[in-house]
Amino acid sequence: MGVVCVYPYPVPEEKSGQQVVDTIQKQLELLGAHKSGNFFVDCESYQSNLQTATQQRLLHLFHNSEQPATCFSVLDNGMCLVSDLLFEVLILKLAEKKSGKDSYYQQRKGFKVESKGQRYELGDFIIKVGSVIVASNFRGILIEVEYSPCVIPSECWNLMKEFIQSFMGNIAENPPAHIKSKMDTVYTPEDTIQQYLEHFNNFRKATSASVPATPNR
């Protein structure tokens, strides 16, 4: 597990998402990258349902195909719990109604976000071109670039920047906001999830903003 940077890739209005993904993939193959399977990162959100609590809390449950036996649970204040996959079963139990009592957690419907697509390798770089799907609608493109041998973001940022700019242009002028705050610490898989959460939240916001617009069309 090395340093990972996740960037959204803009989709021009005149092109479909698939076209843009194809262009990026073609570009990567020209650079010498080879396919190494598929990947996915998904997120489901649960809402706390306690009567006593004044405020509802959100819990995001993440899976990442890079760590297939792990699930990540992130609270809305950024606290992250890394656990075995069995933790999901616990959450499901907590989300069940039991003997007339309300459940502790409630799954938010239509809030599932997923980014999936092709995984590429080029030397020690791993590149993942993911299409983001919110409630089974295509919403955008997220590109994840991992430099696996290095664990300190500040050490390899310039190297990654050069590489990312070679196929994505100027999108990667600065490191992702989440990494920026911890450039000199050891990078963990948790940090990847935090980056995804940030982007997924942005996509959700964009979705909810555009939902009222759809009936007018």
Partner: peptide, 8 residues
């Protein structure tokens, strides 16, 4: 440069 053919 830093990057060349997948390596620093």
């Amino acid at each position: 440069k830093h990057y060349h053919q997948g390596s620093p």
